[in-house]
Amino acid sequence: MLGSSSVSYAIALSALTFISSEIVEGSRPVLQRTIESLFSDRSETVYPDACKWLRSSPRQTKICNRDPGMEETIDVAKNQAISSCEDAFRYDKWNCSLVFNNKPKRNIFNKIYRETAFIFALTAASLSHAIAKGCASGSLVKCSCLNSFGKNTVKEWKTAGCGDDFRYGKRITRNFLDFKHAGNDQIADTLKQNVLVGVEAVGEQLREVCKCHGFSGSCTTKTCWKRLPPFSSAMGLLKKQYHHAVKKKIVNYTTKRAITPKVRKRIRKDRKSLVYLQKTPNLCVSTVGRPCRDRQNCATLCCGRGYNKYQRAVDSRCNCKMLNCCFVKCDTCRENVDFYECK
């Protein structure tokens, strides 16, 4: 009997632990869970939820059900954020990995490091960019081309063409991340600020593009629209924000109590900068064997340990010119390129 009761107790305790963990996971803000899920899941796993690429909340399910194109847009935003991050940071000490120095316990989302702040800004920026582009391309059916009308200085009239609706992208991104219910403590304020910095980085790239129409090349009529450049433009701005991120003093990280208006005013002095709360661990351990771009970059990336220089052969276009290794009529030739790797 004693053994049976012990087994029953153990089963009950395990079930209670599982339920408790589910409650804790479910109690985390949607904003935090969504960003972490999109950037962490590097696989092509498809969930049964309406949004497919993440376990969606009721609000997110409603948004995805309302516009079937949202599933594809989320996938575009997810892949765009990850690939652009890995490309931009491939020669940096942190190369968009999810853990520091290959230590699983040092997950990038356990605290709010500089890199964590950047990921929140990057993912939110990618979402707003993908949604704005989806409106113009027609993949999202609940929005359309951004239209505006106006007159120019030479009394020629212009009509709006098919533009990228950034305002719609910004609004849906905030709704999708459940921005209003992200919390009122310092952690929530920090994450929300980083999300807004990311979204506004996309908005700063919005430009008016015009096309002239008229007889014999004249510009009697203009068609104008707002267009966002490729996401790499916003990525360049966000990387600058990453290097100039501001470290804030932790007020109540462990208690998660709502902070007073006086403290919040002090925290919000600079709303245009990325904000982080914890210092990044020393990343020099993780750079061993990493490729580096050139000697100047290697000195920083390799943390003073030095680097190995190799040569590798690559194919290049000859352009029908006489080169050291090519004949006049060849298409490609092999040439050696210097390659550096950290010791």
Rank of each mutant, 00 (worst) to 15 (best):
V209E: 09
C318N: 14
P291H: 09
A201Y: 03
C224V: 09
G304F: 06
C210H: 08
Y307H: 14
C333Q: 15
E208M: 10
R55A: 02
G236Y: 00
P29H: 08
R266C: 00
E156D: 13
C342L: 04
Q205M: 11
H244K: 09
E25A: 11
S216F: 05
L301S: 04
G26I: 07
C284P: 03
V328I: 14
S273N: 03
V195Q: 07
T153W: 09
K249G: 11
K151Q: 09
T220F: 00
E208N: 08
E335D: 12
I267A: 06
K155E: 11
K262R: 13
K142E: 15
K170M: 04
L196D: 07
H244I: 00
C342K: 02
H213R: 14
M1H: 13
L283E: 10
A234Q: 02
V263C: 10
F100K: 05
F149T: 12
A188H: 08
F176C: 03
L238P: 02
S273L: 00
R312G: 07
I74V: 08
R268E: 09
C342A: 07
I19D: 05
S56C: 13
M70I: 07
R290S: 07
G236T: 05
E44K: 15
N110K: 15
F179A: 04
C51S: 01
L237N: 10
W53F: 09
M70T: 11
S56E: 07
T221W: 06
R312V: 15
F179C: 06
I250E: 14
K105F: 03
E44F: 13
P29N: 13
K151T: 10
C326D: 06
P229K: 09
V288G: 02
V285S: 13
G198M: 04
I259P: 04
E341V: 15
T221P: 00
V99L: 08
N107V: 00
G183A: 06
R55Q: 14
T332Y: 12
V24G: 09
N79E: 09
L196Y: 02
S232H: 10
V328W: 12
I259L: 12
A81W: 04
K239L: 03
F118E: 01
K133L: 00
V199W: 02
C212T: 10
Y310T: 11
I23C: 06
L191G: 06
D92T: 09
V314G: 02
F327L: 14
S6F: 13
Q80L: 13
E71N: 04
E72H: 07
V154C: 00
A160N: 14
